[in-house]
Design a protein around this nucleic acid. Structure first.
Lengths: 195, 195
DNA sequence: TAATGAAGCTAAAGACCATTAGCTTTACTT
DNA sequence: AAGTAAAGCTAATGGTCTTTAGCTTCATTA
């Protein structure tokens, strides 16, 4: 990993922990194993690092949710739907990179319009759009009762988003959150899926 | 309003806009109409202001959700449930004080455990607890089908929380969010309420 | 081999910021 | 009327933080 990438990596870690204003360039440099002025060989300034990170966040979004590839094959049974859903949540909640990115966006979402938009994309449009398509497909296959797929996508993903946010704040609740998620998803399936 | 209260008021406004680290004591003083050193006649330091604000947030939570008073009388029809729900959301989304408090907590939730806990209370326990009791009561009155009231409370409140968060980030979406809320609540009632 | 440019370093400038010291005013109390 | 305490002010201190200037090293290339 190049120094430039290492700077971005450590900056993201620190920004997600202490926020942009709460992080000094010296801290970033120290984590990278370099003195602060050396950062300026790679970035024009502190804000340039921030902008590079948000560029990455946007690119990551496009890469992940830009095409329909990430949907994969549609679940064919209720249990398969539940299992893949839980597994996705567990991964999203625990993966260090995704976790850092999420906390970073939550912290900096009010900085300007661009941050706001990208946060909405990551937090709402992306995952809800994905589940809209999955449910739509499964509806056509007769696995879901006829209903508005977008509405159902919101209803299944929104509680999950709140529990993930809680686990980000209070990591000791991670297990508890996962249990709530499973209970919720099962209930959702009982209500909206066909037998 | 006393100077001390005015300081807290302006500090909350600025902290919700620019964050704690992004706000200088001089800015607070200027909004109050006073020079920065005068703040120290009322608070021991900048962090003391922050702590007073979080004390207020906690007190406000206890006052509002501590007793069951805030539940009021149970809705007696589907339409009444929908109307009161929408009205509560509209108020919560638009009231300037509540909005500032919410943005403040979202921004500072990772500062320490106390902030994390109070944010969870405001964002999850409070409103979900309220709806758990409302739905529970209405279930006993035969207006809701038999189900787990806590689960239903989560399912009706979580999407609302996400739309409110979106409207905080992107105020131009406020109307759109309210429409989504209404659509969602109506769908929720169609599914879980008796005829 | 000489030249070049990338990437590091030290030292320091310059801005900003929270806080303190010490003075003044004002209002209330005795 | 004298005393006192609250609440404001100016000036300044000490610290931190971002950024720049200028030097060194080293690898690559002409």
């Amino acid at each position: 990993m190049s120094t430039k990438e290492r700077i971005l990596d450590e900056a993201l870690t620190l920004f997600s922990q202490n926020g942009y204003d709460g992080t000094g360039v010296e801290q970033i440099a120290e984590k990278v194993g370099v003195k602060a002025p050396s950062l300026y060989k790679h970035f024009k300034g502190k804000e340039d690092i921030l902008n590079a990170l948000i560029d990455n966040a946007e690119a990551r979004y496009e890469e992940f949710f830009g095409s329909d590839k990430h949907i994969g094959k549609l679940p064919e049974t209720k249990e398969e739907f539940i299992q893949t859903a839980i597994q996705k949540v567990s991964f999203t909640m625990r993966d260090p990179m995704i976790r850092k990115m999420r906390k970073f966006l939550v912290r900096e979402q009010f900085r300007n319009e661009r941050f706001a938009e990208i946060t909405t994309k990551h937090q709402l449009s992306g995952i809800q759009g994905m589940y809209t398509k999955i449910i739509e497909g499964m509806m056509q296959n007769g696995l879901f009762k006829e209903d508005d797929p977008e509405l159902l996508a919101t209803e299944v993903t929104a509680p999950v988003a709140l529990w993930i946010a809680k686990a980000d704040r209070q990591p000791q609740c991670e297990q508890e959150s996962m249990e709530s998620v499973e209970k919720h998803v099962r209930h959702f399936c009982d209500v909206y899926m066909t037998e």
